[in-house]
């Protein structure tokens, strides 16, 4: 049975698109059939982070409006054949996304894939509410920072009231993904600790992604960090998160990038 997962946050710039790409590639690496969908109409970026920006022919709105078949709009990843991308439209208005249209596309995707990962736009407007509307599982991406935690709290409220599951009296399974975490600064009291964030938001923790140069390096070259450098700290953290998502009990550790003497000497060089 296919699962629909929404990656959401309320606040922009916290790592939704990075996490969508990384989780999608890690799930695909484990053999699952995965599609990642960009819901950010007008400001698409998942194609760029996945390295498929030159290959976009049709998009989600073309499919919703019947101008293209789903099979024509899906872009198969060149690195992993069981990973596909459905891009957002760059030129159309977000109002072109209709609720029935999105429901139809998701129902079709359920037949073909094991995981459907919806990359939500920032904010709480149409694109964001449609991205979460049909979700079975939600990954709430949060930075250890006051405005991000506040916006995540708001999004959790919407997941509990405005989704299809909530309206049927069921619950969307919610998970917290804490990104850009710096354990040294948290220990020094310069950054909210994971315990602080967990206490405030009180949803289960899916993973802690440490702040790392590897994330920028991966997006520079257009590859999910779990593909570009699976052994890096964020790479390992995302793979652990995926195992938890599949129900495994994995000890919560914060991986760090091991550095030798040379790495330490040159580690501060810009990537």
């Amino acid at each position: 049975m296919a699962k629909i997962l929404v990656v959401t946050s309320g606040k922009g710039g916290v790592g939704k698109t990075t996490s969508t790409a990384a989780l999608g590639a890690a799930l695909a690496h484990g053999g699952e059939k995965v599609v990642v969908i960009d819901f950010d109409v007008g400001l698409r970026n998942l194609d760029l982070v996945m390295g498929a920006e030159r290959r976009v022919v049709f998009d989600l709105i073309n499919v919703v409006q019947g101008d293209a078949k789903l099979s024509q709009a899906l872009i198969r990843d060149k690195r992993m054949e069981n990973l596909s991308l459905l891009p957002a439209s760059q030129t159309r208005d977000k109002d072109a996304l209709t609720e029935e249209g999105v429901a139809r596309v998701l129902a079709d995707l359920r037949e073909k894939f094991d995981w459907i990962i919806c990359d939500s736009p920032a904010g709480i407007e149409r694109g964001a509410t449609l991205a979460m509307r049909h979700a079975d599982v939600a990954v709430v991406v949060t930075n250890p920072e006051v405005s991000s935690v506040r916006d995540s709290d708001r999004i959790i409220g919407l997941l509990d009231s405005k989704t299809e599951k909530a309206e049927k009296g069921e619950r969307v399974e919610k998970h917290l993904l804490l990104t850009r975490y710096d354990p040294v600064r948290a220990e020094r009291g310069e950054m909210l600790k994971k315990e602080d964030v967990l206490e405030i938001l009180s949803i289960p923790l899916l993973g802690i992604i440490p702040e790392s140069e590897e994330v920028l390096r991966a997006s520079n070259v257009g590859a999910p960090v779990t593909f570009n450098n699976p052994d890096s700290a964020p790479g390992r953290a995302y793979f652990d998160a995926v195992r938890r998502l599949k129900g495994e009990n994995v000890e919560m550790i914060i991986p760090s990038d091991r550095k030798g003497l040379l790495g330490k000497l040159f580690g501060r060089r810009a990537a």
Partner: peptide, 22 residues
């Protein structure tokens, strides 16, 4: 040897091509 891991030039080129089209 020291530049073998730089990814910024790749990012720059990808963006230039994409934005030229857009």
């Amino acid at each position: 040897f020291f530049n073998r891991r730089t990814s910024a030039p790749v990012a720059r080129e990808r963006l230039q091509i994409l934005l030229a089209h857009e």
